[in-house]
Design a protein around this nucleic acid. Structure first.
Length: 210
DNA sequence: CTCCCGATAGGCT
DNA sequence: GCCTATCGGGAGC
């Protein structure tokens, strides 16, 4: 059973972010259950992080979900795409983890129906994975992963062989936190966005052998 | 690899 | 108006 405590556990957000790699995310959509393994995330550290939507304590109707309890879903729109954060700190501490890429595992055919793009480009970006899941609105914003059709299974995990770190993608590098190494991904997994070539041996897609 | 642009939706000052 | 936690395509090193 999923608990708020499991999202938080008294741990700093960058550690929780790394712990989400290899977890299975699923969405019970109108055409059945779809999902995949989380292979790439970014940490956003709240009021002190210049790249965070909550920087400086910014709190509006739009960003309100970030201030909710751990496990709260924050969905925001950029251009014509939607992205998804998990809130991971106690109420009033607006730190979030952006889910940036999935390796399709649950009903890949339906993911492809939702986003008819072949290969790794199906889910290798935060806007792309939401399209593939079939989420194209903010209806789940503010809901809890424990009770919504969108959820993350924290009871089991596929272990990455290596976790790679980099600066966050798309953030303004001129600002104070623009170059902080807060992006984490499964090294060598082909579904990671903007994958660097031959950085790791890709055999096994970057997962530990069991 | 890096940057840069255009399309494009919506929130905010 | 001005901004952007995107995407897809392109140019240049």
């Amino acid at each position: 059973m999923l608990t708020n405590r499991q999202f938080y556990g008294g741990r700093p957000t960058p550690l929780i972010a790394q712990d989400l790699l290899g977890r299975q995310l699923t969405y019970q959509g109108p055409h059945g259950l779809v999902g995949g393994l989380i292979v790439e995330v970014e940490a956003y550290l709240g009021v002190t992080d210049t790249a965070s939507h909550a920087y400086g304590g910014r709190r509006t109707g739009y960003t309100a979900a970030l201030y909710g309890p751990p496990g709260t879903i924050y969905i925001y729109q950029i251009r014509s795409y939607y992205c998804f954060d998990v809130v991971v700190q106690p109420v009033g501490e607006p730190q979030g983890i952006l889910i940036r890429a999935l390796e399709p595992t649950v009903n890949p055919d339906q993911l492809y129906q939702n986003r008819p793009v072949m290969g790794v480009n199906l889910t290798n970006g935060p806007g792309k994975l939401m399209q593939a899941l079939g989420i194209a609105d903010r209806k789940l914003d503010g809901q809890s992963l424990q009770t919504s059709p969108l959820t993350i299974d924290l009871t089991t995990r596929r272990l990455p062989r290596h976790i790679a770190v980099s600066r966050r993608i798309g953030v303004n590098r001129a600002k104070a936190d623009g170059d902080r190494p807060l992006r984490y991904y499964v090294a060598g997994n082909p579904y990671v966005s903007k994958t660097k070539r031959a950085e790791w041996d890709r055999s096994g897609h970057g997962w530990q052998v069991s």
